[in-house]
Design a protein around this nucleic acid. Structure first.
Lengths: 387, 387
DNA sequence: GCAACTTTGTTTATTGGATAGACAAACTAA
DNA sequence: TTAGTTTGTCTATCCAATAAACAAAGTTGC
């Protein structure tokens, strides 16, 4: 009597999601067109659209041009029905955005993170998020969530199990932020959110199987398989930076030997450059390369080759549609590209090469923040679907 | 008027599948228990069960013991409602089973494959399958499909793109068999079907994320992620045998260098053994190891270590619940186990090690045939669900 | 052996979402 | 002005699931 007939409700939720997604994909759109596109009956579409309008997610924006009969009433998604906070928590910086529900940036902030201690970081993070949230205009749903990308392993409960470069262990970040702000909080690894950012808003838009390689001081990876972030048995996976590419190579702090990131990361580049007397600074090295410094270019080519070695492995293992290189090293793109491409073409299996694209992050330093915001946005849509 | 009310039908199919799966999982089962287990209303369950009985998939097998009231009527799945053929097409052998819908072997056959040419193979394969099908008892659905595992790359359309050890290129095996037998045919890579076999009927029963490592002359792998075979962009993935573990190691025929299978396969073992004057035969080497031959044991330990190197990579990349070592080398299990375990514990990331089990194939030489049969069985169930 | 209680499974009336088809409104084209 | 087209709503109907009542078949305690 009170229960909504169990599964009758499910099919309504499914169809509502189908209608909403059609609008999101092909705005502006009439009811008739939605019916045609989705195969749902016109009456069904009308009813579901009315619900969406009542829920302030969709609005009518006037009539379109006639195609020989009554003019269609065009519908659009109300992107300003809610806002999301995305945070990129770096080892020594903080980057944040406030976006609308479509991922358009409304406000943006940056701050240094002087000390990496968890308590200190939290004391900086709290007002930082508060200020971003204060920038949100009045809206139907308000700020729908906070997404955070962190440089470490995160479990399903949003606890940062281990962030070596910050010295963190078992920091219950999600719980702490959730208690402070009282809205949904989503935490994930920096590479995972970067992957999400590029897949949703960047160069990887719409790609089903994509591997995002975050090349910074270390190498992290985010796996998007079947359009979803892949997580392993424990909720974290894809530590491809610790894929051993030299079985008897240098020992790594992770316990393994010959890990990929020892040969292909920014750290590897800086170490090699230092041996030649260059400063330990990526931007200065890139300036030198730009000015024509042959020794630096040679170094970059070496890094590119090792990147290619690891990417060949990735291609053979995942047979993805695209590999996207992101984070700080993507700035070196012009001097890496050729060596990476050549190495991968030499090493990866021919059948797999056919379908793979080697791409460089389009959002640059914003891959992670945008992905973090996307975490919050998609969690919001998921809640809509299941309630 | 004629359309089955679009989505009303979907929910019935979903619920029917839920009921059927409950019966499959916890036979024998009463209607009341199913209602309790699934949360579906008793009346709904009764109605759906009646449909299943009408469709000859389920039957009543008498009453169970009372728990203080009317005795329950127990239901069971009719495993003999149909049969499936599973074929393991090897480089020089043919292995086949006929199973019922639960995967119980009803008939089994083996034959040599004298010449690996595609036409000759097909001439042997056709009567081979015919004889297996002739062994099927009369049943409601008859033989519901043929699954085949082949040692090569298979595309989504069931064409064998490349089987190096058989010299095959672009052989439309699915189409040929489909035309001959007029029932559904499913073709997949040997390692993929092996993974499926172990995950459904072997040591990996019920495991969500599992990597099956088929160690034979080469190394193939089958990835089961989220309980499903993972296929990449082109429909084939998981060529982990060609994961480079020595970036500057031996060149491989695949074009890469230092591929894992060059160091950890049966071929690697036989080559090393031959250098020491041993015969090129796995069984003889295992007999020697069994008799206490220290040199052979040392060789096996070396193979185990290299297996461990690759498995550490797998663990770090996929964070699976289990890694299952199968195919011919699983026979060497007693002399590999310790070296594999030690190496993985040294090299894989601690957080990932927590949840991973190192297992050896339980079905032995039958992993692949059973997985092939499972391909046909699950395709049959999928057809039931969608029609 | 009987009354009271339990459990199983079916029957019946109701609910709610999707649909087909009719229809009204708004427009084009000739 | 008239005929035809397109859009969107309305209405009657269908169908699967459900709650509640009910019948059938047990058990248990005295």
């Amino acid at each position: 009597m009170k229960t909504t007939t169990g599964d009758q409700a499910l099919i309504k939720r499914m169809n509502t999601a189908i209608v909403l997604e059609a609008i999101l994909r092909e705005e502006p759109l009439s009811r008739a067109k939605i019916s045609e596109l989705t195969g749902l009956n016109k009456a069904t579409v009308s009813s579901l659209v009315q619900d969406l309008i009542d829920n302030r997610l969709v609005r009518e924006i006037g009539t379109g041009v006639s195609s020989g009969g009554r003019k269609p009433v065009l519908l659009e998604f109300i992107a300003s029905a809610g806002y999301a906070v995305g945070i990129d928590l770096g080892v020594n910086y903080l980057r944040g955005v406030l976006t609308d529900l479509r991922g358009t940036i409304v406000a943006e902030r940056q701050a240094p993170l002087p000390s990496p201690g968890a308590d200190e970081a939290f004391n900086v993070l709290r007002p930082f998020i508060q200020e971003l949230m204060a920038d949100a205009p009045a809206s139907a749903f308000g700020v729908v969530g906070i997404g955070v990308g962190v440089p470490g392993l995160v479990d399903r409960g949003g606890t940062v199990l281990y962030a070596p470069n910050m010295g963190w262990r078992d920091i219950p970040l999600k719980e702490a932020l959730g208690r402070t702000f009282g809205i949904p909080v989503l935490i994930d690894n920096e590479a995972n959110v970067g992957a999400l950012g590029e897949q949703k808003y960047g160069i990887g838009r719409g790609i089903s199987n994509m591997v995002y390689v975050s090349v910074g001081i270390g190498i992290g990876t985010g796996l998007i398989l079947h359009r979803e972030l892949y997580k392993g048995a424990s909720g974290f996976s894809g530590e491809l930076g610790h894929l051993s590419v030299e079985a008897h190579g240098k020992p790594c702090r992770c316990g393994n030997r010959g890990c990929w990131e020892l040969y292909a990361s920014e750290q590897a580049l800086l170490d090699q450059a230092a041996e030649l007397g260059y400063p330990r600074d990526l931007d200065e090295l890139l300036a030198a390369a730009s000015a024509g410094d042959a020794k630096v270019r040679k170094l970059l080519e070496g890094i590119g080759e090792y990147l290619g070695v690891g990417i060949s492995n990735i291609v053979n293992v995942f047979n993805p549609n695209a590999v996207v290189i992101g984070n700080r090293m993507s700035k070196a793109h012009p001097w890496l590209e050729e060596a990476v491409r050549r190495t991968v073409e030499q090493r990866a299996l021919g059948f797999h090469l056919r379908n793979v694209h080697l791409l460089y992050a389009e959002l640059g330093e914003r891959s992670a923040v945008m992905g973090a915001a996307e975490l919050a946005i998609s969690a919001f849509f998921d809640r809509l679907k299941s309630a």
